[in-house]
């Protein structure tokens, strides 16, 4: 058994590059889906039924599709519509679009739970448009949505493992290559599990520091 971990150690470069790719994928997907989620949130809350209805169908639809299936559709299905992307583009696109739905729904929940009066005070004190959003609406929203955004980021990290099926060289893919090359499944996969765990701990540390900021203001 120790010997098996020794073999994994000799393949550390492969594992580390998988870890790096998983990190890059997750960070890009988390940031992009958060930003797109922000853009989608007003649509979800729009008074125009056509707008809010369309946004709602997208969000609810996405949330009911298993991510693995969605990734299949993007990578294998879209080419038949003439969209042919490499595995990186497809994987990133799938992660971002899928998680935008979750982020938008999370932010909508936090947004409606915000007290209206401070925002109205912002308007009464001369804030409008982007400045109102940036200075008055956004900061308390991020503080209250922080933990849920963190959870969703962890979900993104885990979902990125599915991208191994489109041969994206992320962490699960690296572990899987090592095990098939050397027949050390337990050692290879357990090592990957610990690396995922480490990533999640980093995200949780971030969530906790946002939580502390929020706590001081609650």
């Amino acid at each position: 058994m120790i010997h098996d971990f020794g073999i994994v150690w000799t393949e550390r470069a492969l594992l580390l590059s998988g870890l790096a790719n998983t990190t890059i994928l997750s960070v890009l997907a988390a940031i992009a889906s958060l930003l797109l989620g922000f853009a989608l949130t007003p649509a979800l809350m729009s008074k125009h039924l056509a707008v809010s209805g369309t946004a709602r169908v997208f969000v609810d639809g996405m949330r009911c599709v298993p991510f693995l299936l969605f990734a299949y559709i993007v990578y294998y299905g879209l080419p038949s519509l003439g969209l042919r992307w490499d595995n990186w583009t497809s994987g990133l696109f799938a992660l971002i679009v899928y998680n935008t739905a979750y982020m938008a729904e999370t932010l909508r929940g936090a947004w409606v739970a915000q007290p209206r009066e401070p925002i109205e005070a912002g308007v009464a004190f001369g804030f409008s448009d982007l400045k109102l959003f940036r200075r008055i609406i956004l900061p308390p929203l991020l503080l209250s949505a922080g933990p849920v955004i963190g959870n969703q980021t962890i979900q993104i990290i885990k979902d990125s493992a599915f991208l191994t099926i489109i041969a994206l060289p992320e962490l699960t893919h690296a572990a899987s290559s090592i095990q098939s090359r050397h027949y050390v499944p337990f050692a290879a996969f357990i090592t990957a599990v610990f690396l995922y765990w480490g990533l999640c701990l980093v995200v949780e540390a971030g969530v906790n520091s946002v939580g502390r900021l929020a706590e001081a203001r609650r």
């Binding site: 401070p118 912002g122 009464a124 001369g126 804030f127």
Partner: peptide, 29 residues
């Protein structure tokens, strides 16, 4: 917005900005 900054408003439920300190609340607008 220019007109609104010439009219101060005080609210029943205070409507202070929760993410800012007391001093920052005064300085923000």
């Amino acid at each position: 917005s220019k007109i609104r900054t010439r009219v101060g408003m005080v609210f029943q439920h205070f409507a202070l900005w929760p993410h800012l300190t007391v001093l920052q609340n005064l300085m923000e607008a």
